[in-house]
Design a protein around this nucleic acid. Sequence first.
DNA 1: ATACTATTGGGAATGATTATCAATAAGAAA
DNA 2: TTTCTTATTGATAATCATTCCCAATAGTAT
Lengths: 142, 142
Amino acid sequence: MSLKDVGKDSKQIVERSTRQQSSILEALYGIDEFKSAQEIHALLAKKKLKVGLATVYRTLQKMAEKEDIDAIKSTEGETLYRHCGQNDGHHHHLICNKCGLTITVEGPAIENWTEKVAKENGFSEVSHKVDIFGVCKGCRRK
Amino acid sequence: MSLKDVGKDSKQIVERSTRQQSSILEALYGIDEFKSAQEIHALLAKKKLKVGLATVYRTLQKMAEKEDIDAIKSTEGETLYRHCGQNDGHHHHLICNKCGLTITVEGPAIENWTEKVAKENGFSEVSHKVDIFGVCKGCRRK
DNA sequence: ATACTATTGGGAATGATTATCAATAAGAAA
DNA sequence: TTTCTTATTGATAATCATTCCCAATAGTAT
């Protein structure tokens, strides 16, 4: 077995950093709203940053998996992404239906409640989704 | 202005009942899990009940609007429907990721919490989505 | 029965997302 | 630095749920 082969066998956890990835991450940090992959793609194009649409999808997805960013589904079914201020813990969102303004909220009460309900019904490996939609103060005035 | 014209002007709130609609509703009452429009359509076909796919989509959608049935989005983005045992009030679901078993739960605590959070942040016209996913007792044993 | 029009259905159209796969370019080794 | 391996990219085709279109069908009132 040659050195080359050893290299092949040992599972490489390589992760290369590319300009595309930083462009996408940077774009996300420039806004405080949930945006779709398509919107991010358009935004990059406007800045003359050429990044393939497929790459945007792939990258956002991967970042969401690693929990570097948040992902939710809009009521229309699109997946939306947003940079996550607090990497620490689990949290939820208060989202404006008009302008997209998003406020991050925590809810220990919710966590406890879901845990309790799940346990009472014999469920394990539970996860939950709690998002509040509405109209923010600014938009109401209009 | 003729009698005909009067008929045209007065907004008719006509709602015709069709065999397709009853077939769909009946199918829903035969199961206790969330099913997609496609699944319902296949299920009807198996029973030799010919109903167009578009009609299934339209009907389920309409019934969900009237809150005759419940609708949620699966993690894959599909819209799923289920007949709603208790028409009375707002409620949530505890859903098994393996078998689809669904348990309806109420959560006054949640309602209060979302109301409070929304108000604190100046949001109005709020709605919320709370669903708990996990693995039920039966599936865990396998 | 007749007229009016809500509802249906099949297939085309849409739109977001994923798959394909050759070309490109990180990062390691020499 | 140069070579080599292969992760990553990107243009485009393919998927797949859902909606649109519109002529044909069938409730319902008169």
